[in-house]
Design a protein around this nucleic acid. Structure first.
Length: 282
DNA sequence: AGCTGTACCTGCAGGC
DNA sequence: TGCCTGCAGGTACAGC
C-alpha cells in the first residue's frame, strides 16, 4: 500500500496513541509475517514511533525494536481507551470488525488496548531486531537518502545524473532514494513536466531543480491529506486519507489532463503502471 | 554493476 | 451470470 506519506500518516497516529503502552502479548496467526522472538518485546514499553523510508520503527524501553513494512496491503489499526469512538470505516474492504480474516498479528497492550496488523496479500513483515543491528539488516543497509531528511539537492542531482535508466525508475529505486513509490513518482514527474521515460542522466540541472521541489511538494501534500486511500490504505485508526482526490495523473488513463486538456496515457515502465500527459511532460 | 523479468499473495474490475 | 485475464501503493532474487 503505502509510500512515504501514508507511512508517515500512520506514524503520526501511532505516536499519538501507542507511546506509553506496554506490550502484554503478541498473537501470531501467520508465522511468515512475524520474524524474530516475541519474548523480546513482551513486557516492554513503547517509547517512540519512527519511520525509515517506508518502514515503521516501534522503539521500546529495552534493547529491541519492532520494524514493520506494510508493503502493498498492510494495515496497522489501534483500538483502545485513548480512542473515544470507533471511527466509521468506509473503504477498508475488510469491514469494520476486528480482528478479521486478514488480521495476521495482534499486539495485546495494557489498559485494554490492541494493535492489529492486517494484510490481505501477506507481503508485509514485522521484524523484532536488536537496536544496534537494524542498520545491518538487508533492507536498511542499502536504503538511499530520504526526502525531508538527508536527500539534499546536491545528492539528488548526482543520483539522477549517474543513471541512464528512465527517471521514474530512479525515483522509485529505494537504494537510490528512500520513500517514493509509484503514485508519488507519477505525480512528481507530472508536476515537474518531465516525461517518465527520459533517461535520468539527460535531465538538466534546471529540470532537476524543478523535479526536486515537485517531489517535496507532492509528498508534503500526501501527508497533508492523510495519505491516499485509492485502494485500501487506512491510518492508525482505520480511517481513509483523501489525497486520491487530488491526483493529477495517477489512475487517470483516458481522462483529460488538468493542465492542457489532452488525454492522459498509460504505459508500463519497469513493470509498473505509468501515467503521464504526452503534451505537458517532455 | 546494473538491468529485466518473475515470484510472493489475494481480490476485484473488465472483457467476452 | 460466470469464467478468464490482467492489474494493484513493494521488494527480493535469479539470470543475463
Amino acid at each position: 500500500m503505502p509510500e512515504l506519506p501514508e507511512v508517515e500518516t500512520i506514524r503520526l497516529g501511532l505516536q499519538k496513541y501507542l507511546v506509553g503502552h506496554t506490550i502484554l502479548d503478541v498473537d501470531i496467526r501467520m508465522a511468515k509475517i512475524f520474524q524474530g522472538e516475541k519474548k523480546n518485546v513482551i513486557g516492554a514499553k513503547i517509547t517512540d514511533i519512527k519511520r525509515i523510508g517506508k518502514v515503521l520503527i516501534v522503539e521500546l524501553n529495552n534493547e529491541f525494536l519492532i520494524a514493520i513494512h506494510l508493503k502493498l496491503t498492510g494495515q496497522l489499526i489501534y483500538r483502545g481507551e485513548r480512542v473515544s469512538r470507533v471511527p466509521r470505516v468506509s473503504r477498508v474492504k475488510i469491514g469494520g470488525e476486528l480482528p478479521n480474516k486478514f488480521t495476521h498479528v495482534i499486539f495485546h497492550l495494557d489498559r485494554n488496548s490492541v494493535l492489529y496488523y492486517n494484510d490481505m496479500r501477506k507481503f508485509g513483515w514485522i521484524r523484532i531486531v536488536e537496536n544496534s543491528k537494524l542498520k545491518m539488516q538487508s533492507f536498511f543497509k542499502d536504503l538511499g537518502p530520504e526526502p525531508f531528511k538527508d536527500l539534499t539537492f546536491s545528492k539528488f542531482i548526482k543520483i539522477v545524473q549517474s543513471s541512464k535508466t528512465p527517471i521514474k525508475l530512479v525515483l522509485m529505486d529505494q537504494k537510490k532514494i528512500g520513500g517514493i513509490g509509484n503514485i508519488y513518482a507519477n505525480e512528481a514527474l507530472f508536476d515537474a513536466g518531465i516525461d517518465p521515460r527520459r533517461p535520468a542522466k539527460q535531465i538538466s540541472e534546471e529540470e532537476a531543480k524543478k523535479l526536486y521541489s515537485s517531489i517535496l511538494k507532492v509528498l508534503k501534500n500526501g501527508i497533508k491529506y492523510g495519505g491516499s486511500s485509492d485502494v485500501n490504505f487506512v491510518n492508525a485508526l482505520g480511517e481513509d486519507g483523501s489525497y486520491q482526490e487530488h491526483f493529477l495523473v495517477y489512475g487517470r488513463k483516458g481522462e483529460k489532463c488538468r493542465r492542457c486538456g489532452l488525454v492522459i496515457k498509460k504505459i508500463k515502465l519497469g513493470g509498473r503502471g505509468t501515467y503521464f500527459c504526452p503534451a505537458c511532460q517532455r
